[in-house]
Amino acid sequence: MTRPRAATLSPQRFAGETVLGRKRRARRMARVLTETHPDAHCELDFSNPLELAVATILSAQTTDVRVNQVTPELFRRYRSAADYAAADRAEMEALLRPTGFFRAKTNSLIRLGQELIERHDGQIPGKLDDLVKLPGIGRKTANVVLGNAFGVPGITVDTHFRRLTNRFGWVDEQDEVKIEFLVADLIEKRDWTMLSHRVIFHGRRVCHARTPACGACTLASMCPSYGAGPTEAAPAAKLLKGPRARDLAVAAGVDPDLVPAAAVPILEEDAAADAPASVPEEA
């Protein structure tokens, strides 16, 4: 693989930043994200590695909210790799229909069950090389499973992570694998899994795809893309989302009363607006 490109920064901010300077800035931003999003976590519901792998496969081209609505019944009916391997296709398709691309996802889950039985004694393996050979699992899904089910550090590059790392000037790249390796060079390995969650939280709650809340962002002084959204406190505060929207305003030095109650929930439509345009490889 050719080495991915480093970030090309805006000439207005951080002009002439060195590689070392970028690493130091990225780590400062990562520390601020830790303080900004203490509640960051995997937003897919699961209780074991198999459930997490299944939920992550289902999350392609849909929202975590929608997946979490479907998986309780799915996990009740299918408790093991053998259950998925022997699943009735029509029955599973009916369960998965709300997640979109339900035929492809049903095929992936049935094949996943069969491969786990044949190669791994029905268990989800805990190594990247083994995971990516399984049906429906690419590097993104593998890193989600490793980081959240096995405690193995991994960087999950979803649409939010790709967008924000480019906006942050950490990378100038759209390829997910190249972004993973570039960010791995900037951030300490022990922090990879939680960094992924924090960046994703920030993308869903503050740094939106269409209009980021620049004037209510704790990263404003370190971000070369500051100004892509409103920089005034009042309009920016109205863009904050999530149950901690007012806390996010306070952290950014903004009056929390500027956050209207109607702006607090993260709506499913908001998340869908950030969904990738095509079905990821692991779907």
Rank of each mutant, 00 (worst) to 15 (best):
residue 64 D to V: 00
residue 74 L to W: 07
residue 62 T to W: 12
residue 72 P to L: 13
residue 85 A to M: 14
residue 62 T to E: 04
residue 80 S to F: 03
residue 64 D to I: 01
residue 52 L to E: 03
residue 71 T to R: 05
residue 59 S to Q: 09
residue 44 L to Y: 04
residue 53 A to R: 04
residue 67 V to A: 01
residue 88 D to Q: 00
residue 60 A to H: 02
residue 92 M to F: 04
residue 89 R to G: 12
residue 46 F to V: 10
residue 80 S to E: 01
residue 80 S to P: 09
residue 98 P to W: 09
residue 77 R to A: 13
residue 83 D to Q: 14
residue 92 M to V: 07
residue 77 R to K: 15
residue 73 E to D: 14
residue 60 A to P: 06
residue 49 P to Y: 04
residue 69 Q to K: 14
residue 94 A to F: 07
residue 89 R to K: 15
residue 86 A to D: 15
residue 88 D to L: 11
residue 54 V to M: 05
residue 95 L to P: 09
residue 100 G to H: 03
residue 43 E to S: 06
residue 46 F to L: 02
residue 72 P to Q: 11
residue 91 E to T: 13
residue 94 A to L: 12
residue 62 T to D: 06
residue 68 N to V: 04
residue 94 A to E: 15
residue 82 A to H: 14
residue 61 Q to V: 08
residue 88 D to S: 13
residue 60 A to F: 08
residue 81 A to M: 03
residue 77 R to N: 03
residue 62 T to V: 10
residue 83 D to L: 14
residue 86 A to F: 14
residue 62 T to N: 03
residue 86 A to S: 15
residue 63 T to F: 08
residue 100 G to M: 11
residue 79 R to D: 11
residue 75 F to L: 06
residue 76 R to L: 13
residue 97 R to S: 08
residue 51 E to N: 03
residue 93 E to C: 14
residue 48 N to A: 01
residue 93 E to Q: 14
residue 69 Q to H: 13
residue 69 Q to D: 11
residue 67 V to H: 04
residue 75 F to N: 06
residue 95 L to I: 12
residue 46 F to S: 01
residue 96 L to G: 10
residue 95 L to A: 02
residue 81 A to D: 01
residue 76 R to I: 05
residue 78 Y to G: 06
residue 95 L to N: 07
residue 51 E to K: 02
residue 69 Q to V: 10
residue 48 N to P: 10
residue 45 D to P: 05
residue 45 D to Y: 06
residue 96 L to T: 12
residue 74 L to C: 09
residue 91 E to R: 13
residue 83 D to H: 15
residue 50 L to R: 02
residue 44 L to P: 04
residue 73 E to K: 14
residue 49 P to A: 05
residue 47 S to G: 13
residue 85 A to N: 13
residue 65 V to G: 03
residue 75 F to E: 03
residue 92 M to E: 01
residue 60 A to V: 03
residue 87 A to D: 05
residue 92 M to W: 08
residue 62 T to Y: 12
residue 73 E to Q: 15
residue 44 L to C: 06
residue 88 D to H: 10
residue 51 E to S: 07
residue 44 L to R: 04
residue 74 L to D: 09
residue 96 L to I: 01
residue 99 T to S: 04
residue 95 L to R: 05
residue 62 T to M: 03
residue 63 T to V: 05
residue 101 F to I: 11
residue 81 A to C: 08
residue 77 R to V: 02
residue 55 A to V: 06
residue 56 T to F: 01
residue 93 E to N: 07
residue 87 A to Q: 09
residue 91 E to M: 02
residue 82 A to S: 15
residue 97 R to F: 11
residue 96 L to C: 02
residue 65 V to F: 04
residue 94 A to N: 06
residue 49 P to W: 11
residue 91 E to V: 11
residue 92 M to D: 10
residue 78 Y to R: 06
residue 46 F to W: 11
residue 66 R to G: 03
residue 77 R to L: 15
residue 75 F to K: 05
residue 97 R to H: 11
residue 51 E to R: 09
residue 84 Y to G: 06
residue 87 A to K: 09
residue 80 S to A: 13
residue 81 A to S: 10
residue 87 A to G: 11
residue 55 A to Y: 00
residue 59 S to I: 08
residue 79 R to Y: 00
residue 79 R to K: 15
residue 59 S to N: 06
residue 90 A to G: 15
residue 67 V to R: 12
residue 96 L to R: 08
residue 78 Y to P: 08
residue 63 T to P: 00
residue 69 Q to L: 13
residue 78 Y to C: 07
